[in-house]
Design a protein around this nucleic acid. Structure first.
Lengths: 353, 353
DNA sequence: GTTAGCACTCTCCCACCTAGAGTGCTAACC
DNA sequence: GGTTAGCACTCTAGGTGGGAGAGTGCTAAC
């Protein structure tokens, strides 16, 4: 038997149809699919013996597998991959649902910090999987405005507004008792010098501030805090990943025992990996699919991700998508993610138009 | 047998000691405790037969129960309640850990939006349960400052800074193409009229703005958006519940099958209930313990919560605490929650001092 | 190339058994 | 009267064995 996991290669149409049938049957039934069931439920025009023959071929090509001798076939990760790449088209979200979702987004049109949350929630309920979304993070933060508010005489709150609409806040302790007027003057000065700059630009501009006068020292101190906040903001790969509908994933029978679930949750807490994914997805404008063991951290071996970027290329990028069991209705998931990322693009466009 | 769940009543010292031994043994072993094991591991000075007798009494008092005839005893919710109320004192966190935690909080002393996240993370890792925390939400939002930034000629971003240091952002669409100068003028006007007011006060003050001039109309439009944002902020019972370490809960053997876990997660998504809890806890300055079925939503029947408020009574209140299986080391959990809520109080005090 | 037929394999489920843990009760003891 | 040893009893966990059912792979015929 030299034909052990022969590389996939192009499949003839009949084999494709059978692979497709196995996958689509398995996606709904969650249990191995036998040759009998296939001939009964799909008009393949051949007998179960022939189907068995082809199933054996698909298995030796590495696209299907066997839990044990006398069980039906289940797709491998490679099988799903072939299915997604070569067999099916994505299924667009039905018009009715598109309208409903547009309506919901209309409700939060003027609350930009809600957008990505709603995206995750929408994806979760539409695909019955977990929805994921990150806010659109600027590649390099450009200051748009600085605001200083006195909290008490030795503590000030710095509010930074970025060109992309994001906001950051930080506290600065003050060396001397200070009044709001002095702070406001410093804010005016810093607005003049630092606005429209990135972290390094702001640091350079700050050097030019006279450190001899009391107000100059105050400006320096506050300015340094601002630069540090900018640097921290730039350094964060992703600011936040919002997820919703993890309950949907818990309901899948493959996660009935909680050790598998635990793996998924611990992977979701793995910020470094999520950052990498966002990076991978942000590059192009497509919907990306990551299936089972294709995912770097082994914890994610039982789930698939369907992700798409949104935002303004080169300026601010976020990611939306779904996470579900590898046994996932990919065509629908891809269609839904495509629609939602498009919607997010429209919203973000308003900020730049 | 008329002695079916006789009300607890005061227990003699020996019964208390045995109840305590059963609970503490069960908390670490997670399996029913028999009379034999008790005499072996705790010097009770009596034989297993006597212990059996007392166990039977504790059971008829409703403090212990039996999974089945030939199994040992496990505590009931009432048993844990009696244990927490009448038998044990809370165990303070060891000095070493207190220092480590203080050090970590020192790192984020000037990043107030991190405080409650760190609280949850700290509680999770220290108690090996899930940590929960809400930001300190003002009871009624007082405006401290308004900032307007032009996004594009028909869209402006409103930034509201509250007395308590919180920030809210909203977008306003503008009826006519507008320049930043005009917006800044409006911001000055609104700052003058609306600052230090609550939602209703601001709405009243807005009435006085002349709606005839173009800038008056702009001020009205922006002002109305501000009032709506204030109202929304006030209406939200809790803004956000941050949780960390849910993995710890998943690891407990009682959640090996995922249906129980699912219940917990779905209860955590129940905002209304969390709001009620926060309300209940916010009133007094104690650590509150909610055990198993004492919790309103039946989904929470398998877990306990140990919660404490922090913040400024009458002004801004948040809640920190842990969520774990009912089989939880209560004395340690209570001690840790008490310590962390004290720490949070210190941090918040800086904002008011 | 396709199909019917068939032996084979493996899981699932049920019934059954045994060992072990722990109980409740009773009678004796201090 | 409280405490204890002894004992019969109950229930679970875990192991064994067998039968039904599903599905396979192979072979020989079409």
């Amino acid at each position: 038997m030299a034909r052990r996991t022969r590389p996939p290669g192009p499949l003839d149409l009949r084999s494709q149809a059978i692979l497709r049938a196995v996958i689509e049957e398995y996606v709904v039934s969650a249990s191995p699919v036998g040759s009998q069931a296939l001939v009964e439920r799909y008009r393949l025009g051949v007998s179960s013996a022939t189907v068995r023959h082809i199933l054996a071929e698909l298995e030796s090509a590495g696209l299907l597998t066997h839990p044990h001798t006398s069980a039906g076939r289940i797709p491998t990760d490679a099988g799903y991959r072939y299915y997604v790449e070569s067999i099916v088209e994505s299924v667009p979200l039905p018009q009715v649902e598109q309208l409903m979702i547009r309506h919901q987004f209309g409700q939060v049109e003027f609350a930009s910090e809600q957008w990505f949350r709603l995206a995750a929630t929408t994806l979760a309920s539409t695909t019955r999987a977990a929805g994921l979304a990150t806010p659109a993070k600027p590649l390099a933060a450009h200051l748009r405005r600085i605001d200083l508010v006195l909290v008490n005489e030795r503590l000030a709150s710095v509010i930074l507004v970025f060109r992309e609409g994001a906001i950051k806040q930080a506290l600065v302790s003050l060396e001397e008792p200070t009044e709001q007027e002095a702070l406001t003057a410093v804010a005016d000065l810093l607005n003049e010098r630092l606005v429209d700059r990135t972290a390094t630009g702001a640091a350079a501009a700050l050097e030019a501030v006279d450190a001899e006068t009391p107000s100059g020292r105050l400006a320096r101190r506050v300015g340094e805090r601002i630069v540090r906040t900018l640097r921290e903001y730039d350094a964060a790969v992703i600011e936040e990943v919002f997820s919703d509908g993890l309950l949907n994933v818990m309901e899948a029978p493959e996660f009935a025992r909680s050790d598998k679930l635990r793996r998924v949750f611990s992977a979701l807490e793995n910020r470094a990996w999520l950052g990498e994914l966002v990076g991978a997805v942000a590059g192009s404008n497509r919907v990306h699919v990551f299936i089972g063991r294709e995912n770097q951290p082994l914890e994610m071996r039982d789930v698939s991700l369907v992700l798409a970027p949104y935002g303004r290329p080169g300026r601010a990028i976020g990611v939306v998508g779904v996470l579900g069991p590898t046994r996932m209705p990919y065509p629908q998931a891809i269609g839904t993610v495509r629609f939602v990322s498009g919607l997010m693009n429209e919203l973000v466009d308003h900020l730049y138009a």
